[in-house]
Design a protein around this nucleic acid. Sequence first.
DNA 1: GAAAGCCCGACAGAATCGGTCGTATACTAA
DNA 2: TTAGTATACGACCGATTCTGTCGGGCTTTC
Lengths: 152, 152
Amino acid sequence: MLRLTKKADYGLMALKYLAEHPETPALSAKDVADAYGIPAQLLAKILQRLTKTGLLRSHAGMNGGYALARDPRQISAFEVIRAIDGPLFITSCTKGTKACELTPSCTIKEPLARVNETIAGVLKSISIQDLAEQEHAAGKAREAHGLVALTP
Amino acid sequence: MLRLTKKADYGLMALKYLAEHPETPALSAKDVADAYGIPAQLLAKILQRLTKTGLLRSHAGMNGGYALARDPRQISAFEVIRAIDGPLFITSCTKGTKACELTPSCTIKEPLARVNETIAGVLKSISIQDLAEQEHAAGKAREAHGLVALTP
DNA sequence: GAAAGCCCGACAGAATCGGTCGTATACTAA
DNA sequence: TTAGTATACGACCGATTCTGTCGGGCTTTC
């Protein structure tokens, strides 16, 4: 449980791949899809979504494709996941603006909202760059705790 | 995304309810279901599952029902969620023992496994008792970061 | 103008989730 | 002993979500 969707995985993998190839001006959806064995059309839609949210820049035509809109250090895993999977809610009762209408006495979700914030904080602290150099990611994740702990 | 299932929510709510009524020897599934407006039969199945994993003790017959098997301080949210929703995996590629067979080059999941551990750590640090006294839960969650940070 | 690529909506198959039903079993009380 | 209460468990179905595909349209480069 608590699983990311495959789409989010694909998106993270694609951004990581782009970060690993900074020399090329743009990579097509098919290029990335072939590199990982991901369905090309599905990845295309994911990349389009990431483009619409401003994480990628797209370029049509020959030798077109996608490129990171920002430095990979400035793109967090959280942004990618939210762009693809939508807002992050650990509690199934909170859906967007309206809360737990079925169970008004659901006092569970208040403490779980803290957990939610923590998870979001950890994901925010991990950048695409970290994924590209995976050795450092563990350290980053550890640092994150301190940071998150300061924001109650 | 990253949502708990409703069953897990129900389970947490039920355990919290049991923790709030330590004086009664046992509460039936229906009692708890009525208190929160949860479908009684569904909650019954959830509580049966929690019984099988050793978090609850059940007693059939008149005045029977369920009771916490341990002190509410000794039952973590993590245990409850895992009992109901199964093992916690943030990456959709890792399913139990076998890893990412489709994409052997999926280097994404290694750093995300750290995130996974962090989330598990936070959930482990929150007890049913904390849920019952929700004011304190926030503080507990904050402490958790330090603890988790020490276990790379 | 043709090929390579992005853009986008619709849709179908699959998996999971939420919830119900029926039945069997265990325990208590009268 | 019998009736009533409650758990235990498996089968099942409708709904939702996820994954992936198809088709057509638009943009840029050669």
